[in-house]
Design a protein around this nucleic acid. Structure first.
Lengths: 184, 184
DNA sequence: TTAATCATGTAACACGTTACATGATTGC
DNA sequence: GCAATCATGTAACGTGTTACATGATTAA
């Protein structure tokens, strides 16, 4: 569902190749949606068949040939419709799916030392992610200068704030959990 | 991956039918892992073929017959191994996947009023989830009296704390986002 | 000379979702 | 009388993952 709409959203910024889309995806949307290269090509193919895209082969010398995709009117329409949906499915879209939390749930079956280690590693990862976010914020700021479209960058920043809040909450929770685990 | 291990974890508490497992799953693990009934039956079948489970058909009158699954030694071993894994994949297990955030990212394409509505609905849902959590906490407390195994319930409570922190963070973020969206 | 970048895909498999089928019993 | 609960599944489809293949150019 959302891989398709992510690709539509990116192509709305301008025509791109599958390769470029794959890169753009993993740079900008990766935090809240992940996609493999092979999947991107498959979906582009399907989307072209649905009439949301058209593609054109560009012959290059010195470099491999490439296929440039562009959004059609019907693709743009689909994007706008998806963005404007009444969103009855908000509950679905905010669902957590975490094998890590499942391990925590069943951690009573292993020894407390191991469980504590696992939680410390989680805390560490949150801290590292938070540290890495500074760079993301720099890159959004750079794009802001180039794009100079406040209507767009405003929302980019809001999603960035989410990731910050998410890791911060994870870290604070891990601290609480570690205190509980050590206190008994 | 984790559906299998969730089922192993539940069966470790005692033999159960597919139907009971499905219920238990959606009561206790649903916050961090969701599974459809049809998937549960399919996985149980696969797990029996791997030798992690055995099943026995129980004839009932007045009610449909049922198939009761039990953990084998090899299944228990698999559960413990999974729980004790060095967890190189912690980054994978804490990934976000949210169509909602993708919509926010591309919200510059629709009008601000619509985007604001969408964010308010998100905030509302977080608030509702938080309110509903009180009941979850009551039910864990009840189980605690029955199970009387602090080693287990301690970890159940820690995952419960996570869900609280998660919705709280979502709510606080939505407030910030709404302020940004209204302030321009 | 080795790795990275550019560029596109196929094939097979694993996992998740939707729709459908069956049929008795119990509570409102 | 109607919905919910008990209980099990099948079939088809959609999406995500892994592994593989190819081959030129360029920077360390």
């Amino acid at each position: 569902m959302s891989l398709k709409h992510g690709l539509l959203g990116l192509l709305n910024y301008g025509p791109m190749t599958g390769y470029e889309l794959d890169k753009a995806f993993s740079v900008s949307l990766d935090f809240f949606w992940q996609a493999k290269t092979s999947q991107v090509y498959r979906e582009l193919d399907a989307m072209e068949h649905s009439g949301w895209l058209t593609s054109e082969r560009v012959i290059q010398n010195e470099k491999p040939n490439k296929r440039v995709y562009s959004l059609t009117a019907s693709g743009k329409e689909e994007l706008i419709n998806w963005l404007s949906e009444p969103e009855a499915d908000i509950m679905d879209t905010m669902r957590v799916r975490s094998a890590f939390l499942m391990r925590v749930f069943f951690a009573g079956e292993i020894d407390d030392g191991q469980a504590l280690l696992m939680m410390r590693r989680y805390r560490q990862t949150c801290a590292e992610m938070l540290a890495a976010l500074d760079m993301v914020s720099d890159s959004v700021n750079q794009y802001e200068q180039v794009v100079a479209d406040e209507r767009k960058t405003k929302y980019w920043k809001i999603t960035e704030l989410y990731s910050e809040a998410y890791y911060q909450a994870g870290l604070a929770w891990a601290d609480k959990a570690i205190a509980i685990m050590e206190g008994e």
